[in-house]
């Protein structure tokens, strides 16, 4: 994906620059931006290291584990048909908490495990829509279960509470109050997540098994 985006950006810039006669500007921009990326990373390194240090303490002290267990009622609300004690629940909980705390490195592995566990759940249920592709024709046209849709929509609705990177960028570009956006960001995130929850519950209404 990024291959295409990046190539289109670079090629457009050079062709459009040649067309508008701004090749020397393009040259300078390429060289300056490369240097700028480094100074940005130096600012970011401090903020990210601070955050990750705090999170390491939170993990050792058992705070993250407590939070993961604490959202159990929320999981029951969103995924009423995943049996209690099914591994999918645990992975989903870990993914959600990692998202909330902005632990990017922990989100994706747990999220992928959750999807695999949800796939297994569909196989256990003998869901015709999900199993359809398994025989003969290979893994074509497998349908997502309601749980998968809900999990992904929640995930994409953004759950992060403290936008650590955004604060670091604002700091680097001379904001007078880099953290001023925390509360509005939390409000906007809660709103988009609320919309996601309502949409999923509406789509999932009255279903027993898929």
């Amino acid at each position: 994906m990024l291959n295409t985006i990046w190539a289109v950006m670079i090629l457009t810039a050079v062709m459009y620059g040649a067309f508008t006669g701004r090749m020397s500007d393009v040259t300078n921009a390429a060289l300056d931006s490369a240097g700028e990326a480094i100074s940005l990373c130096i600012t970011m390194a401090g903020v990210v290291a601070l955050w990750m240090g705090l999170m390491e303490i939170a993990q050792r002290a058992g705070i993250i584990e407590k939070l993961t267990r604490g959202i159990s009622p929320f999981l029951t609300l969103m995924f009423p048909r995943i049996p209690k004690g099914h591994p999918a629940r645990e992975y989903i909980a870990t993914n959600i908490i990692a998202n909330v705390l902005g632990l990017g490195w922990a989100c994706t592995p747990a999220g992928l495990k959750a999807m695999e566990a949800l796939a297994k759940l569909e196989a256990e249920r003998g869901n015709a829509g999900y199993l359809a592709g398994q025989d003969g024709s290979g893994a074509k046209n497998r349908y997502a279960s309601n749980e998968m849709c809900t999990f992904l929509i929640l995930n994409i609705s953004s759950l992060q509470l403290i936008p650590v990177n955004m604060i670091a960028y604002r700091n680097q570009y001379g904001s007078s109050n880099p953290t001023a956006i925390i509360a509005p960001a939390i409000a906007a995130t809660l709103f988009s997540t609320l919309v996601a929850i309502l949409y999923c519950k509406w789509k999932d209404r009255g279903r027993k098994a898929w």
Binding site: L118, M148, L152, I153, I156, C200, K203
Partner: peptide, 17 residues
């Protein structure tokens, strides 16, 4: 994520997202 579950028909996920 859907690649991990080997799903090709994503149903209402895109609309919700």
């Amino acid at each position: 994520y859907f690649l991990a579950a080997k799903v090709t028909k994503t149903r209402y996920t895109l609309a919700g997202a």
